[in-house]
Simulated scan of single mutants.
Amino acid sequence: MEVKVIGSTSYVTIAIIYVILLLLLLIIYASSSLAIPKIKHSIQQKYKQAASEDVPSTGNFLTLEKLHQQVSKYWIMAGRGSPQFMSVFSVTTTASGVICLLTLFIHLVTIIFAIM
């Protein structure tokens, strides 16, 4: 069986690189899925702590400006507690994007050499 070569790299080597990158992506996604519940719990604890500190005592009324600030702050905190927000802004998502771009580059080079 003849092994085809692209430059000085064989197709077998490229296939091994693909498998390694896919396994790395699988490890990244598995670790992300395990970390998200813990991060969400931590954010909810901070939210509850901040909410308990900002409760006005009886007889004290909030001004419209203060009420607007509190609603904005809690809206942002509540939004950050969602798993979608946490997964979008995590380091693992960035790493996955870089790995996908690297795989795309390798695949494009392979296709170009195969066509030639």
Rank of each mutant, 00 (worst) to 15 (best):
residue 3 V to Y: 14
residue 5 V to G: 06
residue 11 Y to R: 07
residue 12 V to W: 03
residue 14 I to A: 01
residue 14 I to T: 02
residue 16 I to D: 07
residue 16 I to F: 06
residue 17 I to G: 01
residue 17 I to Q: 05
residue 18 Y to Q: 02
residue 18 Y to P: 01
residue 20 I to R: 06
residue 21 L to A: 05
residue 26 L to Q: 10
residue 27 I to W: 11
residue 28 I to K: 02
residue 30 A to Y: 03
residue 30 A to G: 03
residue 34 L to H: 01
residue 35 A to W: 04
residue 38 K to F: 00
residue 38 K to D: 00
residue 39 I to P: 00
residue 39 I to T: 07
residue 40 K to T: 08
residue 42 S to P: 03
residue 42 S to R: 12
residue 43 I to S: 01
residue 45 Q to D: 15
residue 45 Q to N: 14
residue 45 Q to H: 12
residue 47 Y to P: 08
residue 48 K to N: 13
residue 48 K to V: 11
residue 50 A to Q: 12
residue 52 S to P: 00
residue 53 E to K: 09
residue 54 D to H: 06
residue 57 S to K: 12
residue 58 T to N: 08
residue 60 N to Q: 15
residue 60 N to S: 15
residue 60 N to Y: 15
residue 61 F to L: 14
residue 63 T to F: 13
residue 63 T to R: 12
residue 63 T to D: 14
residue 64 L to A: 15
residue 68 H to W: 05
residue 68 H to S: 12
residue 70 Q to A: 01
residue 71 V to P: 05
residue 71 V to W: 06
residue 73 K to N: 03
residue 74 Y to S: 05
residue 74 Y to F: 15
residue 77 M to W: 05
residue 79 G to E: 04
residue 81 G to T: 02
residue 81 G to F: 00
residue 81 G to M: 02
residue 82 S to C: 02
residue 85 F to W: 07
residue 85 F to M: 09
residue 85 F to N: 06
residue 90 S to C: 13
residue 91 V to R: 03
residue 92 T to D: 00
residue 92 T to I: 00
residue 93 T to W: 02
residue 95 A to S: 10
residue 98 V to P: 02
residue 99 I to A: 02
residue 99 I to P: 02
residue 100 C to T: 05
residue 103 T to P: 00
residue 105 F to H: 10
residue 106 I to K: 02
residue 107 H to W: 04
residue 107 H to F: 10
residue 108 L to D: 03
residue 109 V to E: 09
residue 111 I to E: 11
residue 111 I to L: 12
residue 112 I to P: 05
residue 112 I to L: 14
residue 113 F to C: 11
residue 116 M to Y: 07
